[in-house]
Amino acid sequence: MTRRTTGWLVSVAAAVAVAAGAVTYAAADGDGGPADLKVPAAESADAGFARDMAVHHQQAVEMSYIVRDRTEDEEVRRLAYDIAQTQANQRGMMLGWLDLWELPKVSEKAPMAWMGMGDAPAGEDGALMPGMATDRQMAALGMARGRAAEIMYLRLMIAHHKGGVHMAEGCVKLCVVGAERRLARGMVASQQSEIDLMTDMLKDRGATVSTTP
């Protein structure tokens, strides 16, 4: 079994465990108001955020396991592992909420319609939402090695996190389930901290943040 396969199995197991506990978390860990006892509508901000961020997180997990196989740098490998584990767990939680609410995991509406961005231009080459890497960028990351892979990953993940922060900030404003708003606030804080860290890591490697890898 390869290291990447093992990593995926660990993340899947963690996601399943978190999803199994999502019923208690979503039902009992809200703000205590009436909104926490109601099932969100299928096209609500709560449901839309859970669906879209689950997709967004999945790519971050994939990118992180790709780079772990393509560098020996312990700092990058540790960061990639932390991001993969955190986002796999959060993804499991959000999918667990959708199961709890008995809502579809796919919407007929465009991504981010729940935050008023449904009419935004469609992403190109597989990038479904802001910050997501294109198919070409994912393929390039899969071919890179060593320092080149590290720089490419850091640049792509900074862009990915910026898109994630924007979406999480939308949930903080629009979601009504207290537990979900708290998760979104935590995402904003942690991903902004990681953006700062990754910017410094790029500087240490003689590189700067760029819109292209």
Rank of each mutant, 00 (worst) to 15 (best):
G7Q: 07
L9I: 10
S11C: 12
S11R: 08
A14I: 14
A15Q: 06
V16E: 05
V16T: 05
A17R: 11
A17G: 14
A17Q: 12
A19E: 08
A20P: 08
A22C: 11
Y25H: 14
Y25W: 15
Y25D: 12
G30E: 00
G33F: 15
K38F: 11
K38L: 15
V39C: 09
A42L: 10
S44C: 10
A45T: 04
A45M: 07
F49K: 07
F49Q: 05
A50Y: 01
A50W: 02
R51S: 07
D52H: 11
A54E: 11
H56F: 05
H57D: 08
A60E: 00
A60S: 06
A60P: 03
V61K: 05
V61E: 00
R68Y: 12
D69H: 11
D69N: 13
R70V: 11
R70L: 13
T71M: 03
D73A: 09
D73E: 14
V76Q: 02
R77I: 05
R77M: 07
L79I: 07
L79T: 05
Y81F: 15
D82V: 14
A84Q: 01
T86A: 13
T86E: 09
N89Y: 00
N89I: 11
Q90W: 01
L98M: 07
P104N: 01
S107W: 13
S107C: 13
S107R: 11
E108C: 00
K109H: 14
K109E: 14
A110Y: 11
M115N: 15
D119L: 09
A120G: 09
P121Y: 09
G123L: 00
D125V: 07
D125N: 08
G126E: 02
A127I: 03
P130Q: 06
G131S: 03
G131P: 00
M132Q: 05
M132P: 06
T134A: 09
D135E: 15
R136K: 09
R136Q: 12
Q137W: 05
M138G: 09
G142L: 02
G142W: 04
M143T: 12
A144K: 03
G146H: 04
G146K: 00
G146S: 01
R147P: 01
L154N: 02
R155L: 03
I158M: 04
H161Q: 04
G164P: 01
V165Y: 06
H166D: 15
H166R: 14
A168F: 03
E169F: 01
C171H: 02
C171V: 05
K173P: 06
K173C: 06
L174D: 09
V177P: 04
V177A: 08
V177L: 10
E180W: 00
R182D: 03
L183R: 04
S190Q: 06
Q191N: 07
S193I: 00
E194S: 10
L197W: 12
L197Y: 13
L197T: 15
L197P: 10
T199Y: 06
T199E: 10
K203E: 13
R205S: 03
V209Y: 13
T211M: 14
T211Y: 13
